[in-house]
Amino acid sequence: MLLINCPYCGPRPEAEFANGGQAHIARPADPMSLTDDEWAAYLYMRDNTKGLHHERWRHANGCGRFFNASRDTTTDVIKRTYRMGERPEAEHQGAKP
């Protein structure tokens, strides 16, 4: 069971959280202006990272807040958790604007 550091509550066991998929995928501001392919890419295409991966978590059985975590998918080590709206650390490659 992962130990996840909620930026609002502190470290808590994984059972309190729900994973929210890859982070830093912003909903397009004007979806109707997108082509079908662009919209399909937003809907369905996700990275399958081996290594450092930025993902969303919700402290569902706690404060209820969403936040981001940078987790190494090969070791499950969570390098950092940070609030929504904050950027992943610069040296972390693979983060999308």
Partner: peptide, 13 residues
């Protein structure tokens, strides 16, 4: 509720 919270917190804060 979780989906509403998701949009509210992450897309339209």
């Amino acid at each position: 509720l979780s989906m509403m919270e998701d949009y509210l917190q992450t897309e339209w804060p």
